[in-house]
Design a protein around this nucleic acid. Structure first.
Length: 269
DNA sequence: TCCTTATGTACAA
DNA sequence: TGTACCTAAGGAC
């Protein structure tokens, strides 16, 4: 499910199955039918991700812009493709594979200029080679907004979602309510480097794991556990349960319409 | 079977 | 700050 690592992984997965082929493009659910018709016979030539935005290039400059939102999902399978569910917004199918996209916030055909406009409103993405963390720090270091809100602001950093936000702040012992301008350059460098590492691992494994080897249940002599969302984490969705490090209750609170999770003992101002 | 929830974002007021 | 949008899974009945 969709934070930046999911989208970069999807870019790889679409590329592996469809690059250099002219897949049949359909929209069983209907909302992308007109654009799908325009892509009939077109070769998929590249895929790219920036933050939570996915781009599939057909021909020279026809881009399908996809944003999964909160509910979007892509399912891949081997040919022959079964009859699609009627919620499938976009199906690509060639002789070897198919991919079904459901529930996206965005699935639209755009031009190079349209794509550039998307990049322009996004901050640096820890998963992209061209990312400049200094760009993000210039905004953070001038802001009275909390670091928790800034990390989720895609104009500041692209690709971080609610899980990575909670976890990276925990890993660095940073209180989520600290103002951006109180984050030191050294703290930002460490946060960024950690995001790069965690998110790369997220792409590799297609899930979010943030617990250091020294803190796994095995290493700490505790019973094994499985976190709700499929990865091993410190605080995300662990409200009122004991912190893995200090044992105090993990706290939760609403912040900008999302649930924030943190350990008030391990994360100090 | 209904209700809640979710790793997101945009827009109105 | 609230609401709308898109889908599916899990839990309460």
């Amino acid at each position: 499910m969709p934070e930046g690592h999911t989208i970069h992984r999807l870019a790889q997965d679409y590329a592996a199955r469809f690059t250099g082929t002219a897949p049949r493009v359909t929209s069983p659910q209907g909302k992308f039918s007109d654009a799908a018709d325009l892509l009939g016979g077109a070769v998929l030539t590249a895929t790219e991700a920036h933050g939570k935005h996915l781009f599939l290039r057909f021909r020279d400059a026809d881009w399908v812009h996809i944003h999964l939102g909160l509910f979007g999902k892509v399912g891949f399978g081997a040919a022959p493709a079964p009859p699609p569910a009627d919620t499938v917004r976009l199906r690509l199918a060639n002789d070897t594979a198919y991919a079904d996209l459901r529930g996206p916030t965005t699935c639209a055909l755009i031009t190079d200029a349209g794509k550039r406009a998307v990049h322009d409103r996004l901050g640096p993405d820890p998963l992209r080679e061209d990312a400049d963390p200094g760009t993000a720090y210039r905004r953070i270091s001038r802001s009275r907004t909390t670091i928790a809100a800034l990390l989720m602001d895609q104009k500041v950093v692209a690709g971080v979602g609610n899980v990575y936000r909670a976890e990276v702040l925990f890993r660095h012992g940073i209180d989520p309510y600290r103002a951006g301008r109180d984050i030191t350059p050294a703290e930002w460098d460490a946060l960024w480097a950690d995001l790069v590492e965690l998110m790369r691992e997220g792409v590799r494994n297609n899930r979010i794991d943030t617990v250091r080897p020294a803190h796994t249940p095995e290493a700490m002599g505790r019973p094994p556990r499985v976190d709700d969302h499929g990865g091993e984490v410190y605080v995300y969705r662990r409200a009122s349960r004991p912190c893995h490090l200090c044992g105090d209750a993990v706290r939760t609170a609403g912040l900008a319409a999302r649930n924030l999770f943190w350990c008030p003992t391990c994360q100090q101002r």
